[in-house]
Design a protein around this nucleic acid. Structure first.
Lengths: 250, 250
DNA sequence: CGAGTTATTGACCTTGTTCAAATCCCGTGG
DNA sequence: CCACGGGATTTGAACAAGGTCAATAACTCG
């Protein structure tokens, strides 16, 4: 088992070329802090505690369950999967994390990460030491607020997927959710690549991979989407939205 | 529809008898702050922003989905249910909140509460203005840390229940979880009352109420528990733990 | 007591799983 | 360039967990 990137500092990090701010323009924090009218010097404070990691190859772990928690990370590029393995050896996918999104928040409560995080494709990261960040947050109300909001948002997300929806509703919610999240980061909302295998989608949505296949096939037949392997196009966004609405609540 | 308690200040509040600290000894914050060696004066700061509410009667709402968010609350006595109602009129129970636990955290991200909160029995509350609390948290690292931890814990809880477990596993996890949470607040871990109807349990666990009945009957037959209506006794905590272990991860 | 809600029970049914097999996809090496 | 191999995906058929429906029983509270 190859070691995870975070706890061992033998990972390649990007050279500190003084261009951190540029590289990090996609980070949730920078973004949010700017939105809230934070000044340049404050942003500078934030960036001194950023470390850039990457590129990671598909299958590389960022952290593993039980690793000592001391940092969260923003995904800058690629897709990260978080998951746990239960005592029976069964894997449970907790989420997929796209550029601009934060991983590791569920580790704040406790000494150790409660799950694994692995790169699904080529991934670039910003690592934020959480203790340092907490100190900084005490001086920067905007940052504190942003952290609270990120945490709160994840609670809502998880609570909703926990409810009892049909396979169609969950699949539609998954596709629409991906589309919206990609769009908010500047990618196409209509066409995108699924960076994860069917097994992971099914595991995330609590469906057998076979069911994932069948639902996608049916969506295809009904002209809701065009699927070709991992290539996806949303053809009837309205219909998908209607299906997903109860799950996403919007 | 009767108004919720929080947004309208016509609710009965306990008289401010200078005994807030005593009343609030069960609050998560006081507890945690003391644990972290916070001094008395800091605790005083915390308590000036506490409002005591109650008693609320069963069925009284604390807040409703869409109400403007500006406070979280600690349950001091009784049980609070949080839930949403989807466009089809279907209710989804998000959680049950026991004494010492916090409600409203999922409202931090956004202007409004994303769910309803209702008293299941006679409930006493401490209300904390969140804006004021955030300001205070910036001055009190222990409080900020505690808030981060509470939020983080809720993410983990929600993520785990979202996974795909059998009816038996979920029911066992529900009972063991209740037992542990009650115990940590000084109640009996072995015998307790279910303060919610079967429909709510089922809705929370994604089971039909009939299934709740059947699983409980089977647990009874197998001598895992003794059930009599809402009266519950855990007979074989080890077996229940074994069933619940994958869900609760402990 | 009696209406109305909540809980239990049984019979049947639906959704999604499981298992097995065929097919596709894609990188490797000849 | 093309055959080969291994994983990923799809498909079909049988199966099972849990849901639905309907009826009954038990509480609750005025």
């Amino acid at each position: 088992m190859r070691p995870a990137v975070f706890p061992n500092n033998d990972a390649r990090t990007l050279s500190d070329d003084g261009d951190a701010l540029h590289f990090c323009s996609t980070c949730a924090f920078s973004q949010a802090c700017m939105d809230q009218g934070m000044d340049k010097s404050a942003l500078g404070d934030l960036h001194v505690l950023v470390e850039h990691y990457g590129p990671l190859a598909p299958g590389d772990h960022i952290f593993r369950e039980g690793d000592r928690f001391d940092a969260i990370a923003a995904v800058r590029a690629g897709t990260v999967k978080t998951y746990v393995v239960d005592p029976d050896g069964q894997e449970h996918v907790l989420g997929f994390h796209l550029p601009g999104e934060i991983i590791g928040l569920n580790g704040i409560d406790g000494e150790h990460y409660p799950c694994n995080a692995v790169a699904l494709d080529t991934v670039m990261l910003c690592r934020f030491s959480f203790p340092k960040m907490a100190v900084l947050a005490a001086r920067m109300p905007g940052l504190q607020r942003q952290l609270f909001r990120l945490l709160s948002r994840d609670i809502g997300r998880a609570e909703l997927l926990a409810a009892d929806w049909s396979a169609d509703q969950r699949m539609a919610a998954f596709l629409v959710g991906l589309s919206q999240r990609l769009q908010s980061r500047g990618f196409s909302a209509r066409r995108f690549q699924l960076s994860m295998p069917r097994t992971d989608i099914g595991n995330y949505l609590r469906l057998a991979p076979e069911t994932v296949s069948r639902v996608l096939r049916r969506f295809h037949q009904e002209q809701l989407v065009r699927v070709d392997g991992r290539e996806l196009e949303l053809l009837d966004a309205d219909a998908l939205h209607a299906l997903a609405a109860p799950v996403l609540r919007n």
